[in-house]
Amino acid sequence: MNISEYIASGILEAYVLGSTTPQEKQEVECMSKIYPEIKEELTTLEGTMETYAKMHEVKPSEGLKSKIFAQMTFDEPVENSTDEALPVVEESQTKVISLWPKLAVAAALIFGVLFVWSYKKNGESEAQLAALKSEIQQEQVKISSTESMLALFKDSQNVKMELNGVEKSPNSKVLAFWNKETEEMKLVVDKLPVAPKGKQYQVWGIVDGVPVDMGMVDLDFQNKILAMKVPKGNIAAFAITLEKQGGNPTPTLEEMYVIGNV
C-alpha cells in the first residue's frame, strides 16, 4: 500500500473534521495503528484543528463551571468494586475441608495408575483400551503437528511473521509462515479466544491498501497448521478478524484480533 498516496487522499483531513462515515473512521483508526507515518500526520492535523478551534473559542460565562460541576460526583473512584465480604467466609470454609480434596486427588491418582496398570497387565476393559488408544492417537497427532511446526520453523523458504493482538485482544498471537515461492501461507494459532457460536475467524491480506480474503480459520484451530493462499500484489499486512461463520466479503475492522505488518 502506498502510504503517501493514502495520506494525500484527504481522508485524514475528513477524519479530523469529523466528516467521515463510521466505516472510514474505523479504517483511519486502523491504518494509523499500522503506519506510523499516517499516525504522525493524523496527530499533526488533530493538533492543527485543535489550534483552529482554540482561535474560535468563546469564553463561557462565570457561573457555568460551578453549574456543570454540581452535576458531577467525584467521591467514588471508578474502580472500587465487590471484594469485601466474600473472601473471609470462603477462606474459613476452605480451611475446614482442605484435607479432603487433597486425599481425593491422591486417591484418584492412585486409582488412575492402578487402572492403567491392571489393564495393561491383563487387558480387561475394552472401553478403557479404546479410550487409551484415542489418547495415544491424540498424542500422536500432537507430536506430528509439533514436528510439522518445527519443519515450518526450519524451512528457510519461509518468511516468519508474528501477527500480534490489537487492543481488542492484546494477548492474541498467531504465527505465520509465508512461502513467497509457492505463495502459500501456513498459520499456527498461538493464542486466540475461542470463536463464539456462529462466528469464525477470517484471514485477510492488505493488498495495495485493500483487504483481500485469504480464507477462513478452522473452527477447531488448536494445534493445527492452517494453509492459506496468499493473494498477488503489494502486501502491506496480514490480519485476522472475527466474522460470521463462512466469512464476509469485507472485514469488520472493529472485530480485528491480530495484525502483522510485512
Binding site: A53, K54, H56, E57, V58, K59, P60, L64, K65
Partner: peptide, 10 residues
C-alpha cells in the same frame, strides 16, 4: 471549555 463552546456556538 472555550474551544468547545466556540464549536457549539457556531
Amino acid at each position: 471549555s472555550g474551544s468547545l463552546l466556540g464549536v457549539v456556538t457556531k
